[in-house]
Lab assay of single mutants.
Amino acid sequence: MEVRTIKVFTTVDNINLHTQVVDMSMTYGQQFGPTYLDGADVTKIKPHNSHEGKTFYVLPNDDTLRVEAFEYYHTTDPSFLGRYMSALNHTKKWKYPQVNGLTSIKWADNNCYLATALLTLQQIELKFNPPALQDAYYRARAGEAANFCALILAYCNKTVGELGDVRETMSYLFQHANLDSCKRVLNVVCKTCGQQQTTLKGVEAVMYMGTLSYEQFKKGVQIPCTCGKQATKYLVQQESPFVMMSAPPAQYELKHGTFTCASEYTGNYQCGHYKHITSKETLYCIDGALLTKSSEYKGPITDVFYKENSYTTTIK
């Protein structure tokens, strides 16, 4: 009895394709271990004539594949690729409408935090270190965002349907971005203890939790000093293409032309909904596939993004 075979390709990165001759009487799992086709788990399936010449994702289970996976995804987590594939199996079914010149995501599976993050990423200057993220990001900007969303979920250790947080998501993504040249110098002034300067680099240099107003941050924000008295913390120097200011959701007025974009969060910790506000020729609110415009805006804002380049204080 002759062994019926077909020729397929296996890959971990969709760049390096490895030619395989597979036995049609055995499952993919018996031949390769966990195997995925377009995100779908085909591990328990036997090869079919229609699979001839198709590319299958496999887990990096030998040295060659491990090197290829690390170079593309910059992670050695053995569960990463499987999590990416199972997320992709959902995100490829989502709709990605162009809204006001940006790629958004039609609401499904509690994905409003991903839509808000995706919209924000198209408006701030950011370059990702893992080629996987950078490639998928370019495709997302062009309207094909399924891979990018699935990668975000995998890097953030999230599953489809789980509630997510924009600030946490951005923080994970910033860790995989090139923020080497970003720098922030802060000064804390206390009447009792004097003053202390701190220099922050990388992710810490672009994120701040405690106030939404970048102007206020430049002037000074009140913080408790270690001595128990009130101290003032203010920005001395900022070198970065953008800054992200966050605070627990509270009524906040966004003035046209003073910011790049913002995240609105309605609801409580267990259950809520994100919308995205962007400042173009007027203010726009993007909620999944829905767009509304207004000249002014007041609502429960939790993150505001500002364009920056270089700032030095005039406070002496």
Rank of each mutant, 00 (worst) to 15 (best):
E2Q: 12
E2G: 15
E2F: 09
T5G: 12
I6R: 11
I6T: 12
V8L: 11
N14A: 15
I15N: 14
I15T: 13
N16P: 07
L17W: 15
Q20Y: 09
V22N: 06
M24D: 11
S25D: 15
S25A: 14
M26W: 09
T27H: 13
G29Y: 12
F32E: 10
F32Q: 13
Y36A: 03
Y36W: 13
G39W: 09
A40Y: 12
A40V: 12
D41S: 11
D41L: 09
V42K: 04
K44P: 12
K44V: 13
K44E: 14
K46G: 08
H51I: 02
G53V: 06
K54Q: 11
T55V: 11
Y57W: 14
N61V: 09
A69Q: 10
E71V: 08
E71I: 10
E71Q: 11
T75M: 10
T75R: 03
P78Q: 10
S79E: 15
S79W: 09
S79L: 11
L81Q: 05
L81S: 01
G82F: 12
Y84M: 09
L88D: 08
K93S: 12
P97M: 00
Q98F: 01
N100T: 10
N100A: 13
G101H: 05
T103Y: 12
I105D: 01
K106E: 15
A108M: 07
D109G: 01
N110S: 04
L114Q: 04
A115D: 02
T116N: 13
L118H: 02
Q123G: 04
Q123W: 00
I124A: 05
I124M: 01
E125P: 09
E125Y: 00
K127A: 06
K127G: 10
F128D: 05
P130E: 05
Q134K: 09
Q134H: 12
D135C: 06
Y138G: 12
R139W: 10
A140I: 12
E144Q: 14
E144H: 09
C149R: 06
A150P: 01
L151I: 00
L153F: 02
L153C: 08
A154W: 08
A154Q: 00
C156K: 00
N157S: 07
K158Q: 02
K158H: 08
T159D: 09
T159I: 11
T159L: 11
V160H: 07
V160R: 00
G161K: 08
G164C: 05
D165A: 14
D165L: 05
V166K: 04
R167S: 05
T169S: 07
S171Q: 06
S171W: 15
L173M: 14
Q175H: 13
A177I: 12
A177C: 15
N178Q: 13
D180P: 05
D180R: 07
S181V: 07
C182L: 04
C182N: 08
R184L: 07
R184E: 04
R184Q: 03
N187S: 10
V188N: 01
V188L: 07
C190W: 05
C193G: 02
T198C: 08
T199Y: 03
T199C: 06
T199D: 08
G202V: 02
G202S: 01
V203D: 11
M207C: 09
M209L: 05
T211D: 05
S213G: 01
S213T: 06
Y214M: 10
E215G: 06
K218H: 03
K218R: 04
K219E: 00
K219T: 11
G220E: 02
G220N: 02
I223R: 03
I223Q: 08
P224M: 12
C227N: 01
Q230V: 13
T232V: 12
K233H: 08
Y234C: 08
L235H: 06
L235Q: 01
V236W: 09
V236Q: 01
S240R: 03
P241T: 06
F242S: 01
S246I: 05
S246W: 00
S246E: 05
A247H: 04
P248G: 14
P249I: 08
P249Y: 07
Y252L: 05
E253H: 11
K255C: 06
H256E: 10
H256M: 14
G257P: 02
G257F: 00
T258D: 05
F259A: 03
T260V: 15
T260D: 02
C261P: 00
C261M: 01
A262D: 02
S263M: 05
E264S: 07
Y265H: 05
T266E: 09
G267P: 14
G267R: 15
G267M: 15
N268R: 06
N268Y: 03
Y269T: 15
C271T: 00
G272F: 04
G272D: 02
G272M: 07
Y274G: 03
H276R: 00
I277G: 01
T278L: 12
K280W: 01
Y284K: 01
C285V: 14
D287L: 03
G288M: 13
A289V: 10
A289F: 06
L291S: 15
S295I: 07
S295F: 01
S295M: 11
Y297A: 07
P300R: 10
P300S: 09
T302H: 09
V304N: 07
F305S: 06
Y306W: 10
K307R: 11
N309K: 11
S310G: 13
K316H: 15
